[in-house]
Design a protein around this nucleic acid. Structure first.
Lengths: 155, 155
DNA sequence: GCTATTATTTCGACTACCGAACTTTACACT
DNA sequence: AGTGTAAAGTTCGGTAGTCGAAATAATAGC
């Protein structure tokens, strides 16, 4: 009974947390003058720098054509450079610029610091619970996603 | 030290959880033959049913024009009905259909059940930690969003 | 009853996306 | 070496979703 109350509270808060992540991404994109897709691409490039256009296509789940235009925009904005791979001249290597790394630090640096500060309030045991919860939530969510994908499509 | 390891693990898992939420939403939209925006609108309508077009405009953070077309699509798909408000005939009340409620049950019902089952492994104290963590994470994220909004826009 | 305001829709332009066709480069086989 | 095939990106044409602004309809104030 009281557990059910907590459970619905957790669901509500997870939804709110999701929304706050979304708002943060939106603010970050606005700050950098990018659209959400391009910001996501830039994050992927920064995480695996440099990256070929094809790898970015896969990672960002975009068509090759959309990836090309996204790289165009990021290049024009000064956040990435295009270079043909010397070892395989078909490939285009996309690398983040120093401006991109500076933007990353400015946007995400303080988030990490604030996160560390906020987590200081928890002890080892509590952090373990949090980790376990995050893992469990992800597993449940992925199982449910798989369930949906198995259902016949309406429409 | 060991705390820092946990902290970065938490950050990583939060990002993964975010991605799994995103994948779930994508799968739900595909299942129902809707785009992400329309699914978001439908969720908002179901949560506050019926709703005027203007309220939906505000809640969904869309332009009035985009809201009109989103309602058009949801209406064509059989998930909502349009009715002029008898008390104020300028307003259009958008109401979810039984089909929409059935879809909601099919998509989200099992998520709630699975969530409840998964949370059974935690005791009261642990659930309290989880709630507190979700609340804290949201607060941090919103503070960081506010920080970004205060910075001068590039681009 | 006019006039201003509110609520929604329509219209035109723009952005981002996809699939398909195309160009360039690499590789395999003879 | 020479030709055919595959791979990696880009270009092109069409489509979907969005916005701002103008248009339409209904209410409220004076």
């Amino acid at each position: 009974m009281s557990k059910d109350i907590d459970v619905s509270g957790i669901a509500v808060r997870m939804r709110m947390l999701q929304q706050s992540f979304d708002a943060f991404d939106e603010a970050a994109a606005t700050l950098l003058g990018l659209n959400r897709t391009d910001l996501r691409c830039l994050d992927l490039i920064l995480a695996d720098d440099p990256m070929s256009a094809g790898e970015l296509t896969t990672a960002a789940k975009l068509s090759p054509a959309a990836t090309t235009t996204a790289i165009d925009r990021l290049e024009r904005a000064g956040f990435v450079t295009r270079n043909r791979d010397a070892a395989n001249r078909r490939r285009v290597l996309v690398a983040a610029t120093e401006a991109a790394r500076a933007a990353e630090r400015e946007v995400y640096g303080p988030v990490g610091e604030a996160g560390i500060m906020a987590l200081r309030r928890y002890g080892e045991d509590q952090l373990a619970v949090i980790l376990d919860f995050l893992e469990t939530a992800r597993r449940v969510q992925e199982e449910q996603t798989a369930r949906l994908k198995g259902l016949p499509v309406r429409g």
